[in-house]
Amino acid sequence: MNDLDPIINVPARLRIMAALTALNPSSQLDFRTLGKSLGLTDGNLGAHLQTLETAGYIKVEKSFVERKPRTHVAVTSKGRARFEAHVAALRAICRV
């Protein structure tokens, strides 16, 4: 039985998790930068982020920088662990 995570095993969410886990554990990425670098629209990105946040894989933080709203996204330790398990499962399948 493989250990693939059904929440992560969706192309857009896999890419979001890959992008966020590429950062340091204490770092958060700007929403716009994330969407731009993954080629996702704001609506599409927002929907996937909500699914990941509900699962406890990421946390979304809204703040104001120079009176302008900014949203930052970070992966949680649970999300990082699930993503690493997902990647390990993908590697195991490749070895089959």
Partner: peptide, 30 residues
């Protein structure tokens, strides 16, 4: 989460390649 997801080795390889590409892309964007 306990259900097995059917995936072929080719699809798994493509997903891993996608992860590598996104990791590089995000570092470059930053």
């Amino acid at each position: 989460q306990e259900q097995q997801i059917p995936i072929t080795p080719e699809e798994a390889r493509a997903s891993l390649a996608e992860i590598d590409q996104v990791t590089l892309r995000i570092r470059q964007t930053i």
